[in-house]
Simulated scan of single mutants.
Amino acid sequence: MDVRQLEYVVAVAEELNFTRAAARCHVAQSALSYQVARLERKHGVTLFERTSRSVRLAPAGELLLPRARAVLAGIEAARVELAELAGVVTGRLRIGMIGSTGQAAPVVERALAAFHHRHPGVEIAIRDTGSRHMAGQVRDGELDVAFVGLHPGQLPAGLTHRVLADEPLVLAVPHGHPDSGLADLATRSAFVEMRAESGLRRQVDAVFARAGLTRRIAFELATSDAVARFVAHGFGPAVVPRSAVEARPGDVSALDLADPDARHPIVLVHRGPAPSAPGARAFLAVLDEFEARAPVRAPRS
């Protein structure tokens, strides 16, 4: 087996989809599928159970996956150490990032752009699989850093965190909608929500739980910006960060919630005390610079 085959196996195992794995590895799906099948034939095993609708690891795949990751990590470490001897930061920076970082967005985006300019030899890979999943991926070493919408107490143990922003949640309704409280809308309207694995959804669920309310959910979307757009079109009310409403003046109005704990944080997480990847450490240094210039933490009211 060769290194490229191991990269394909890891990609398919993590994506559980041959098309996404091929896109991630920048190859045609047919080429990736051929190499995986070739590896299976050579060793007389089945690595993945395939159906027309799903892909999952077979027992042989479960056995090979951690060893493949270890081999690839060793090769990457050697490449990085050689580059460091030459004074160049290389490698791969794996970032998890929620669809909308709210008030932290300007700092995060400018820091990422500056990092890319300063360290062009680092390949940047960004994914959004939901705050809960990404926090676990950082813990397990599958991501170097992640920006998530979870409070520190909701993070897995062993992660270092930094709160970049913390803004209030508000009740979003179409502009001109008569003022109604959360309890009233919960009884007669279906809500627009974030997807279940998101950090914002967890905070919104907590708002309803503290109020002793249940609600019907009409739509589940990927970003708070998309939620606000659906509210503007009259699909239903939503509980979102205030910045999502402020981004749509004239379309959506914000009604305050009588809940001081209704907040949405943007938290940076990584393995402590610092990420092992040089690219990740370099990125955190750049982020420190930009946050020092324009801190974005919103004080509690």
Score class of each variant (00 low, 15 high):
residue 276 S to H: 14
residue 93 L to P: 02
residue 203 Q to L: 00
residue 172 A to N: 06
residue 85 L to C: 05
residue 186 A to W: 12
residue 14 E to Y: 06
residue 262 A to H: 00
residue 104 A to N: 11
residue 39 L to Y: 14
residue 239 V to Q: 01
residue 24 R to L: 15
residue 152 P to Y: 13
residue 276 S to N: 14
residue 79 R to F: 10
residue 214 T to K: 09
residue 272 G to L: 10
residue 94 R to F: 08
residue 211 A to F: 05
residue 290 F to Q: 02
residue 8 Y to D: 03
residue 230 F to K: 07
residue 212 G to V: 07
residue 154 Q to M: 07
residue 119 H to F: 15
residue 212 G to Q: 06
residue 247 A to Q: 02
residue 137 Q to V: 02
residue 230 F to T: 00
residue 193 E to R: 15
residue 202 R to K: 05
residue 214 T to S: 13
residue 151 H to A: 08
residue 151 H to T: 04
residue 87 G to L: 07
residue 36 V to K: 04
residue 209 A to E: 13
residue 94 R to M: 11
residue 50 R to F: 05
residue 237 P to M: 06
residue 42 K to W: 11
residue 154 Q to D: 08
residue 56 R to T: 09
residue 35 Q to E: 06
residue 79 R to P: 04
residue 31 A to H: 05
residue 103 Q to S: 06
residue 235 F to N: 07
residue 278 P to C: 06
residue 248 R to D: 08
residue 189 S to K: 14
residue 229 R to M: 12
residue 160 T to D: 11
residue 269 V to H: 08
residue 26 H to K: 03
residue 279 G to A: 12
residue 43 H to Q: 13
residue 144 D to R: 13
residue 61 G to V: 01
residue 265 P to V: 00
residue 186 A to G: 05
residue 43 H to I: 02
residue 86 A to M: 11
residue 92 R to S: 07
residue 283 F to V: 03
residue 35 Q to N: 15
residue 110 R to S: 13
residue 33 S to T: 11
residue 151 H to Y: 03
residue 114 A to W: 04
residue 233 H to V: 10
residue 285 A to N: 06
residue 288 D to T: 01
residue 255 L to D: 01
residue 172 A to I: 02
residue 9 V to P: 11
residue 219 F to N: 15
residue 268 L to R: 00
residue 2 D to A: 03
residue 279 G to E: 02
residue 43 H to K: 14
residue 177 H to L: 07
residue 298 A to E: 01
residue 164 L to T: 03
residue 233 H to W: 11
residue 120 P to I: 00
residue 1 M to K: 09
residue 239 V to C: 00
residue 203 Q to D: 03
residue 136 G to W: 14
residue 231 V to C: 09
residue 47 L to H: 02
residue 138 V to F: 09
residue 33 S to Y: 15
residue 241 P to R: 05
residue 177 H to S: 14
residue 62 E to T: 14
residue 153 G to K: 10
residue 271 R to S: 08
residue 56 R to M: 07
residue 241 P to K: 07
residue 248 R to V: 03
residue 232 A to S: 11
residue 279 G to F: 07
residue 18 F to M: 13
residue 93 L to C: 03
residue 211 A to Y: 04
residue 95 I to F: 12
residue 218 A to P: 10
residue 12 V to D: 06
residue 236 G to F: 12
residue 208 F to Q: 05
residue 236 G to S: 12
residue 155 L to C: 02
residue 254 A to G: 01
residue 70 A to S: 12
residue 34 Y to A: 13
residue 61 G to I: 02
residue 123 E to Q: 13
residue 255 L to I: 03
residue 219 F to D: 14
residue 218 A to W: 00
residue 82 L to W: 01
residue 129 T to W: 09
residue 298 A to Y: 03
residue 70 A to F: 05
residue 158 G to D: 13
residue 50 R to S: 07
residue 142 E to Y: 09
residue 112 L to P: 04
residue 3 V to D: 12
residue 34 Y to W: 15
residue 54 S to E: 13
residue 160 T to E: 15
residue 290 F to H: 15
residue 62 E to H: 12
residue 239 V to Y: 00
residue 286 V to Y: 10
residue 125 A to E: 15
residue 128 D to K: 03
residue 120 P to T: 08
residue 208 F to E: 01
residue 3 V to N: 04
residue 156 P to Y: 04
